[in-house]
Amino acid sequence: MTENTNTNKINSFQKEQNKVEMRKQIITFALMIFFTMIAFFAVMLGVSSTFVIPLILILAIVQVGFQFYYFMHMKDKGHEIVSGMIFGGILVAFLVIITFVAITWW
């Protein structure tokens, strides 16, 4: 019987933790919406392109970071291999993009 009460305690503790986690995720979501809006408004208002392109790219990268680390829990323990794979993919992706922007001419 003692075991049972133990699990219940862990469960309620776990529930509390899940709640805290959820609150963080809502904040993350709010920030993402906010960033999206900034990006869209910056473009709609016609800010000069030398400024706006880096801005929207940075906002995109930050948003994606939120997705990976908060929504997909990459910040949690047990995600070391996962991070390795994603960053490996990002590295190759980066090379590909650089290639197609810089050394694929028409």
Partner: peptide, 21 residues
């Protein structure tokens, strides 16, 4: 699935690259 997503990253990067070019 996570590992698959690593591969998908490259897949979409290739499509983005093609688009940018």
């Amino acid at each position: 699935l996570w590992i698959f997503l690593g591969g998908e990253t490259v897949l979409f990067a290739c499509l983005f690259g093609t688009y940018l070019a």
